[in-house]
Nucleic acid binder design. Structure first.
Lengths: 137, 137
DNA sequence: CTGTGTGCAAACTCTTTGCATAAGT
DNA sequence: ACTTATGCAAAGAGTTTGCACACAG
């Protein structure tokens, strides 16, 4: 993705295109369905020679999420994961590997969500299916 | 539930029926689908005049969960919740109220889980639908 | 008695915050 | 200039752990 595309994206989110935000956005939005947690993105940034603090990574991920550029979800009560695929979809989580895979359920699956109780509306949902390698029996 | 029923349950889990475990089990299994987090159960216990430390509550909840007496899940990356309903089912989470409701999807919904990738097997799943009160528009 | 369980406080992980400095417009 | 971002370190929530004492079998 060209740099000025990235800048446009950050601006579009109502955020100043600072060096750190551009760099993080560049790392994030180069892939359609990237899954990262804050710590991992911080490492990625350092590896890429970008000087950012972990706090800024957290802040930036939150800002991008609030702006709708990312989707956040959690697994096993530990880390928060961020997904560049913001459409309604579900995840496989591979235990012991700390790895996430998108599940494409296809169709209008999300229209089949359970009916909320009277007077309530659905804000969102989190659906994670936990996996492990099949034992070789 | 009579006390010796509770003791049997704790024993059945391979755990010594200590004063604390009996008391916590009594508080938990009096309801079919109770949802608590550690902090809340600790308070419940103190309110009931049971002297237990928070660490023991955490340990006991973990032990009961490993023994299959409870089911654990997390919402919004914060607290871990424990459910006395250990069957496969889903949850509504009411934001701002920190309240959990069971969703009974009925039927063999859990047999319609997505097909795991080659060589993987499903260990479990977490499905939480987040709700908020419908604005009075 | 012997081995587990418990309580306490300290440690730990992930995340947020306060405040001085730096950078965007 | 004026305002918003950043970095750092400290605080915070939730949970786990180490170790001495207590209790079940």
């Amino acid at each position: 993705m060209p740099v000025n595309e990235i800048e446009k994206r950050v601006r579009g989110a109502g955020l100043r295109p600072t060096r750190q935000r551009i760099a993080l956005a560049g790392l994030l939005f180069c892939k359609e369905n990237l899954h990262v947690c804050a710590e991992a993105l911080h490492e990625k940034a350092l590896d890429a020679g970008v000087r950012v603090s972990l706090a800024t990574v957290y802040n930036t991920l939150d800002q991008f999420t609030r702006a709708g550029l990312l989707r956040a979800f959690t697994v096993e009560g530990s880390k928060t994961w961020f997904d560049t695929n913001v459409s309604n979809h579900c995840h496989f989580f591979i235990e012991d590997e700390d790895r996430i895979l998108d599940i494409d359920l296809g169709g209008d699956w999300e229209n089949q969500l359970p009916e909320p109780p009277e007077g309530m509306e659905i804000v969102g949902f989190d659906f994670v299916v936990r996996l492990r390698p099949k034992p070789l029996s």
